[in-house]
């Protein structure tokens, strides 16, 4: 993949949209003013960024605990290589699973599929993991719960 080349306006857009938009009637006009470009140019370019997939999602990010989703369990699964495509696709269909990745295992860490499970309680996460296990036939797994959050920020790219 070739590295994308961003001009100064692109970088400014990334800088201004990676944070928090102002909560006013016309937030994009305010941001455009800060960037020194027109509102229509900002909107047009932001939409283009979304179309091209540079912006994966434009929307609200919640504080899980305040929103009532107090439990976040990282499900880690041992899945044979040849079965991962099938299993990963099934895992992804669960609405409680927000992220699902394949990652390399290593000595002392045999797990290779990861699912982030958000629930309103630990019990709910366990119950979801059990349903995933039944749906996939994968029984070798663990749920790692986060007991403390040391940091959670959005990336500052430029």
């Amino acid at each position: 993949m070739t590295e994308p080349i961003f001009d100064e306006t692109d970088k400014g857009l990334i800088r201004h949209l990676q944070g928090d938009i102002p909560l006013t009637e016309r937030p994009f006009r305010e941001i455009a003013e800060r960037m020194g470009i027109s509102e229509s140019m900002l909107i047009e370019r932001a939409r283009l960024f979304k179309e091209k997939g540079y912006i994966r999602r434009f929307g609200a990010t919640l504080r899980h605990r305040q929103a009532g989703f107090s439990a976040n369990g990282m499900g880690v699964w041992i899945v044979p290589e040849e079965d991962r495509e099938r299993v990963g696709k099934i895992m992804a269909t669960f609405k409680e699973v927000t992220h699902c990745y394949e990652r390399p295992s290593f000595e002392g860490w045999p797990f290779n599929l990861f699912t982030m499970i958000h629930g309103q309680s630990k019990e709910e996460c366990f119950e979801v993991a059990e349903r995933i296990s039944e749906a996939t036939g994968i029984t070798d797994y663990k749920l790692l719960f986060s007991s403390r959050e040391f940091k959670k920020t959005s990336m500052q790219y430029f």
């Binding site: 990334i14 990676q18 928090d20 938009i21 540079y54 990010t61 504080r63 990336m155």
Partner: peptide
């Protein structure tokens, strides 16, 4: 204000940005 929304903005695809 009540803290339920952390922020409203863009989530970039870090890979597509070359990161």
């Amino acid at each position: 204000e009540s803290g339920i929304i952390r922020r409203i903005g863009a989530s970039f695809d870090s890979k597509k940005l070359g990161f």
